[in-house]
Design a protein around this nucleic acid. Structure first.
Length: 304
DNA sequence: GAATCGTGGGA
DNA sequence: TTCCCAAGATT
């Protein structure tokens, strides 16, 4: 591990790196051929992919990722772009604040690291929009370092295989230790395990109905061995969308993305009937730096 | 710890 | 049709 020594045990006292070895071998035969996994993809391209993939399906990311890197092949290139340009290039991936933060991260990489994406987890975590997961993903997938990389897929795999629970609870710091308990001891295999565990969660140990029949660790899985008990935790709240500020913000931004000239406030009235909510959302977009008001009171994407 | 922040495909 | 949810980060 490149990180500080951590006991290879979970809070439940289990230490089962042999499970990790099985998952690594399965990955060699079952992995998807995703563009950001190909040889020669640098840490910048990996960082872009990781930010785009936050809460966003692979299929939606692929074309945007390709176009993005063709246009801004290095952090220095993106650092010179305007917010309006990156918001438009982000398209409809969702959560457009990610686009602004990615640009801010590019600026930080230029200013703090000479234009080279840093390889240290701490330096990566200090970049805008880069948290616990993304920092380790870049260090691991972009630089080949062994780190526990814990996303929602991995937390679900750990919950089932290691803890015998149907669903993962809220993310916690101890998740990193749980993953270490499953990680192969060989450094090279540890690196491959990080991507392999994510892939297992994405393809086999999925939310909803897991495909245990084709799972490489079905006979080692604590949840399966316990008889696949149903989730006993509190039902997790489904996030609403219809009628929320998120929907309204999305519609407002959609108009401004399409308009290549500043728009009057009245030009935004059609997107939502509730004027109070509409106004609140426009204000929040201004606060977030996703929208800018011109000197004559019109609205537009920032820096356009 | 809980709430917030987009979007659209699939069960 | 409705509901679930997809490689999180930030506050």
């Amino acid at each position: 591990m490149a990180s500080s020594p951590v006991p290879r045990t979970s809070p439940s006292g289990l230490s089962r790196p042999e499970i990790g070895d099985v998952v690594v071998d399965w990955y060699a035969t079952a992995a998807r051929d995703l563009p950001w996994r190909r040889p020669g993809v640098d840490a910048w391209a990996v960082l872009v992919s990781e930010v785009m993939l936050q809460q966003t399906p692979v299929a939606r990311v692929e074309p945007v990722w390709r176009a993005w890197l063709e246009r801004w092949p290095t952090p220095a290139d993106l650092a010179e772009a305007t917010p309006a340009e990156v918001i438009r290039a982000w398209g409809k991936l969702g959560y457009p604040r990610r686009a602004l933060r990615l640009r801010e991260a590019a600026v930080a990489v230029v200013e703090r690291h000479g234009g080279v994406v840093p390889a240290e987890v701490a330096a990566l975590e200090a970049l805008p929009g880069v948290g616990t997961y993304t920092a380790r993903a870049v260090a691991c997938f972009g630089y080949g370092q062994a780190h526990p990389v814990v996303d929602t897929n991995v937390r679900r795999v750990v919950a089932r295989v290691l803890h015998g629970r149907a669903e993962a609870g809220t993310a916690r710091a101890a998740d990193l230790d749980d993953v270490l308990a499953l990680t192969p001891t060989d450094p090279d295999r540890a690196v491959r395990f990080s991507v392999a565990a994510m892939e297992l969660g994405a393809l086999v140990c999925v939310a909803g109905t897991p495909r245990c029949g084709v799972c490489p660790v079905r006979d080692l899985c604590a949840w399966r061995l316990a008889g696949s008990p149903p989730d006993d935790g509190p039902p997790r709240r489904v996030q609403k969308f219809a009628g929320t500020d998120r929907q309204v913000r999305g519609r407002l931004l959609d108009v401004l993305r399409a308009a290549h000239h500043p728009v009057e406030a009245a030009g935004l009235d059609a997107v939502w009937d509730d004027a109070v909510q509409r106004s609140r959302c426009l204000d929040s977009l201004l606060t977030d730096g996703l929208v800018e008001q011109t000197a004559d009171g019109l609205f537009t994407l920032p820096g356009s």
